[in-house]
Design a protein around this nucleic acid. Structure first.
Length: 803
RNA sequence: GCCCGAAUGGCGGAAUAGGUAGACGCAAAGGACUUAAAAUCCUUCGGAGGUAACUCCGUGCCGGUUCGAGUCCGGCUUCGGGCACCA
């Protein structure tokens, strides 16, 4: 009898052995196929590791460990996305330097991750807050600036009128400040922007080059939101000037019965003398400033707006003078900030017209525009539309666009929902933006030789009363010389958003200590692109898109050789609390991974998180379920007590080959739960026979090793192996041996199961039919009925349709 | 509101290409072992009816396609993720 399974005796032991052996350190080796596996590096929060973290990490650890056994040269790195708001807020509250907080949090995270036995190459660890790292983040910014992709623009921020600070969206709860409950307004500030929109088309098109799960591609395409339409000029009555609109439905122009401008539209200010109800406009503008875009575009809410008195435009198609309104459902950030309203064929316009009694003119037949807007573009013919009458919508689109550009009234235009990236934060704990402002030269970038521009020490990390970054109060840091003319100049005091550091981190892992370049050409050539990147769906539209944008930019300037950073992208579901709600302190349903490791061991935690359910779906935590996985590992441990020598036994030969096949495929398809179920079933077979051969046991151990690396290494050693599992080979299966001689299939009558019958794959239908019609239950079911049809699907089903 | 997902026993979930719904695990019940408990092992385990053989119902709801639908189509409901300064 061997001693009982105690992970405390074995897990640390194997982690130390792997460390000492350098088992998982990756080096360039051109004789081997490379595999670069990437998981999203964590934000090292003060709460420590969450049970959600191990889910994706274990998943790619499994794939990495398996690929190594299959002979690939695997790079599986880990690091820290350590700049950010929570650390800064914690630092403010506790009067500790954010750097100290970060160091402490990283140490804790690292210890926790190490205890889980991941095969990370810790030699390649990085932190975005390390000056040797953010030097290159700043360097990329300089390149963007150099190419005209970084620029300054007036953009609104959330401003708490009481705290006098700029707030993150998250800190605005129901329109009020999360800290003090006061009103939050939008305040316009000059901010650094990155021109991601210049890459919109390629970010869509190049999705065809990569293997991302479909929902990620769809979400990115929708986020970029390409729409093809036209920009059209509507002359302002009595002037030479035009109000320009963007529309995806130029075909409906004859139905444009009024126009709507965003309350922020600059043309309003220009014509304020003409607008008789200017006071009303100002009041409306103030109210709109309090709402987010999200609130403003909500369709369910009551539409609001102000009709301009004394300001009208002319519909260029009909020649009619039409009223102009302002309303907050038109956003200044999309299109031209103004629309032509076609209430008959747009839902929002329809509701607005209903509320304010504006005329609704049908120009596409097919619906009943008195009841609802008719928005179908597939079916319908143009009516009430002059020279467009009788055309289909798509034809009308083409014709009116040509007409408008001939008459110089507008032209075809592609618009994207994607907006440029607001790159400034008025915060301390971020990368300083390496730019100075010189009165003579304007914004001047630092020279590359001056990087990294270090984040200076400050007394206080509190944002300032005027909404500027805390850096603005450090005068001897702010005061600098213009790199161009040498005159006195001021440094930019905004810092970069957390997204900056995470937009290129995969490039630093491959050569993390290089002092001269973010990564050497050799390492880029060998390791890039990332072969498999797994992360949360919540990062699909921001992080994933931002990093693709930066990588494409680096590609354009010849710094990297692949147009896309990630060859493959998969996604995991969240781990919820036992009550099926998101884990949070306030809900009291948080599970600490340390407790699970302490009580059951890391292998149990890993096995459980992989067994919990379909990888891509959310799953609720269950402490009872954890116990079940520990029980499975206990059963595997006790297999050593029923060990017999020899190869695969005759009884289990098929089961062994089938299991190898299933586990091998399931791991690659991230169906970890069914892979584990198959290994449980195999273990149950050993128990049923009350013995396991050495070869069978070793195969099980290697198959299970990626999921539960410690227990399997220990048992493998106990079997007398001098080599470790990590040095062994992935088992192979023989396809011919995975097929059983007979299969049990169902016999159904009109789709209802009546009996089952064993068939062999090569048996012909007539023989099977003869046997089936001898079964009493089948005879009874078809008795006195007419047999209409019989369907036999080989090794699947035999169905008899009767009447 | 817009975009993307999801819904299957008491519970977590399984079901390559539309082919025996409920694999595997948890919980529960009964039994074996034990002085006892824990652990372990064995059995039962979707619902209703029936002594039984067996019958009927059953994959969120309504309808459709099909010899056959958890799976496909149309229309809903509810829940989760994202909505650009949380990351």
């Amino acid at each position: 009898m061997n001693e009982t399974y105690n992970p405390k005796n074995t897990e640390k032991k194997w982690q130390d052995i792997w460390d000492a052996d350098g088992a998982f350190s990756a080096e360039i080796d051109k004789s081997k196929e490379k595999f670069y596996a990437l998981v999203e590096f964590p934000y090292p929060s003060g709460q420590g590791l969450h049970v959600g973290h191990p889910r994706p990490y274990t998943a790619l650890d499994i794939i990495s460990r398996k690929r190594r056994l299959q002979g690939q040269n695997v790079l599986f790195p880990m690091g820290w996305d350590a700049f950010g708001l929570p650390t800064e807020n914690y630092a403010i509250q506790n009067k500790i330097h954010p750097k100290a907080v970060t160091e402490k949090n990283i140490a804790r995270f690292k210890e926790q991750l190490k205890a889980l036995g991941y095969s990370f190459d810790w030699n390649r660890e990085i932190s975005t807050t390390d000056p040797e790292y953010y030097k290159w983040t700043q360097w990329i910014f300089l390149k963007l600036f150099e190419k005209g992709l970084a620029y300054k623009a007036e953009m609104p921020i959330n401003w708490c009128i009481s705290c006098k600070v700029g707030l993150a969206n998250e800190e605005v709860v129901n329109g009020v400040c999360e800290r003090c409950g006061s009103e939050v307004v939008r305040k316009v500030k000059s901010q650094w922007m990155l021109k991601i929109t210049a890459y919109a088309e390629r970010l869509i098109n190049d999705l065809d080059l990569v293997d991302y799960i479909e929902k990620v591609k769809v979400q990115q395409r929708n986020w970029i939101g390409k729409s093809v339409g036209a920009e059209i000029n509507f002359n302002v009555t009595g002037t030479d000037e035009a109000l320009r609109v963007f529309t995806t439905r130029p075909d409906t122009i004859f139905g444009a019965t009024y126009m709507v401008m965003s309350p922020e539209h600059t043309m309003l200010d220009k014509y304020k003398e003409r607008i008789k109800n200017w006071d009303e406009v100002l009041r409306y503008r103030e109210d709109a400033a309090k709402k987010s875009d999200f609130e403003r575009t909500e369709i369910a809410k009551d539409k609001t707006g102000v009709g301009l008195d004394g300001f009208t435009c002319v519909n260029p198609a009909t020649g009619a003078e039409i009223p102009v309104w302002i309303s907050d459902y038109v956003l200044i950030s999309y299109g031209t900030g103004a629309i032509m309203a076609v209430p008959a064929h747009d839902e929002r316009d329809w509701e607005f017209a209903q509320k304010f009694n504006l005329p609704i003119v049908e120009v596409v037949s097919g619906g009943n525009v008195a009841d609802a807007a008719y928005t179908d573009t597939e079916k319908g013919t143009m009516v009430n539309s002059g020279f467009l009458n009788g055309l289909e919508v798509s034809e009308a689109k083409k014709k009116i666009t040509e007409y408008l550009s001939d008459k110089r009234l507008g032209e075809g235009k592609v618009n994207y929902k994607l907006r440029d990236w607001v790159f400034s934060r008025q915060r301390y704990w971020g990368e300083p933006i390496p730019v100075v402002y010189c009165e003579h030269c304007g914004y001047v970038p630092l020279s590359e030789a001056d990087l990294p521009l270090l984040l200076p020490e400050v007394e206080s990390y509190e944002t300032t009363d005027d909404g500027e970054s805390p850096l603005s109060k450090i005068t001897d840091w702010v005061n600098a010389k213009c790199p161009k003319c040498g005159a006195a100049a001021k440094r930019e005091t905004d810092t970069m958003p957390q997204w900056a550091g995470s937009s290129w981190y995969f490039l630093r892992y491959i050569d993390n200590k290089n002092p001269d370049k973010f990564a050497s050409q050799e390492s880029l050539d060998y390791w890039m692109p990332v072969d498999w990147y797994n992360g949360g769906m919540e990062h699909t539209t921001l992080h994933l898109l931002y990093s693709r944008f930066w990588h494409k930019f680096l590609y354009d300037i010849g710094q990297v050789t692949s147009p896309e950073p990630y060859a493959k992208r998969t996604s995991h579901g969240m781990i919820l609390g036992e009550n099926n709600e998101k884990m949070s302190k306030s809900r009291g349903n948080v599970v600490n991974p340390d407790d699970i490791v302490g009580e059951f061991g890391a292998d149990t935690l890993r096995t459980y998180e992989m067994f919990i359910g379909a990888f891509e779906l959310a799953a609720a935590w269950s402490n009872e379920g954890v116990k079940g996985c520990r029980r499975f590992l206990d059963r595997v441990w006790r297999l050593q007590d029923m060990l017999k020598g020899g190869g695969y036994s005759d009884e289990l030969k098929t089961a062994m080959h089938k299991t190898i096949k299933k586990v091998t495929a399931d791991y690659e398809n991230m169906k970890f739960n069914t892979a584990i179920a198959a290994m449980m079933a195999l273990t149950n077979e050993f128990y049923r026979l009350e013995r396991v051969t050495k070869a069978e046991f070793e195969t099980l151990l290697i198959l299970l090793n990626p999921v539960a690396p410690h227990i399997t290494e220990e048992l493998y050693e106990k079997l007398g192996n001098k080599k470790r599992i990590y040095q062994s080979k992935w088992p192979v299966y023989d396809e011919n041996l995975t097929v059983s001689e007979t299969v049990t299939i169902g016999v159904t009558v009109n789709g209802k199961v009546k009996a089952s019958v064993d068939v062999s794959p090569d048996e012909n239908q007539d023989d099977i039919k003869a046997r089936i019609f001898a079964i009493p239950a089948v005879i009874k079911a078809v008795e006195g009925k007419e047999i209409v049809k019989e369907i036999y699907v080989s090794c699947r089903i035999y169905n008899i349709a009767v009447r």
